[in-house]
Design a protein around this nucleic acid. Sequence first.
DNA 1: TATTGTTATACTCTATAACTATA
DNA 2: TATAGTTATAGAGTATAACAATA
Lengths: 159, 159
Amino acid sequence: MEAGDEETEIHGATGDDIDIGPLGQEIGYVLRRAQLMIFRRFFADFAAEDIKPAQYSTLMIVSRNPGVAQGRVAAALDIKKTNFVAMVSELERRGLMLRRPSATDRRSQCLHLTDTGVALVERLRSIAARNEDRIAAALGDGVYDGLFAPLRRIARGEF
Amino acid sequence: MEAGDEETEIHGATGDDIDIGPLGQEIGYVLRRAQLMIFRRFFADFAAEDIKPAQYSTLMIVSRNPGVAQGRVAAALDIKKTNFVAMVSELERRGLMLRRPSATDRRSQCLHLTDTGVALVERLRSIAARNEDRIAAALGDGVYDGLFAPLRRIARGEF
DNA sequence: TATTGTTATACTCTATAACTATA
DNA sequence: TATAGTTATAGAGTATAACAATA
């Protein structure tokens, strides 16, 4: 039984489809695969605007919280402040956002959208809304709506 | 209106919590945050065995498909074959898995678990099962079960 | 002393091109 | 000519340490 030359025993599993076994019943695996697909679509949908998911989230948050401190946005998105610096600088370089020193705490940088940034956010929001509608239609409204509560609980670590 | 010295207009959004706006209603954002939290827990739970998610998935698939070709596992996990080489080599170096040239196609490397690998997979499976039970209990069985079908559809890009 | 933003740096993950040995 | 595995390499994403200015 040591090694043997029996081909059938040696290579096995030659079918076209692989059995992923218990993986398919594990929420982590399924969640990961779903998230990768969503991101893949995201890149395609936002390619025309040259915007990546993290940039999109940043723009959205600054849009809803004009003048918010840089570090608070980073914290809300769970991005390390040290990694967030380059991303704000890039958005600033592209003329979408700008830093302004806080009047009350001169260590803080307050973030604001430029007019160009505001216009871009409008376009992004409309693309995103169309995507949500498409997904909701594909899954059925009830199923789609039902995903949010459990996913938020998981995101909060309530398990 | 150019710049202005009005503090209230300049810094804005000073509350403790940030308004993430429509982001919280977007499946991509919520899915991403949930997936990050699951991975965070995964690292903690599997730290004792020094196993990362991709390694876990690889071991599980080889466990269920002994002798499967290396490239087919990479494809099943959506990992580029070029990046998969190092990960198989590492598992082989750790004595968990081994490559054997296929008897029918000498280009192919067939993957097998070692006895150590089989024993590890047993321990990992038991940890994973406990995690699933914990999440199911936290969300409620009905809610937990209901997540899989829509997430699989999203993962397949059916939207 | 502690905090905000910053730089420098390293490590992982992911992506592309080019090679080899087989088929 | 195409495929399986490999190497080398470059680019993102993410992590820590240390610093300046300010609180």
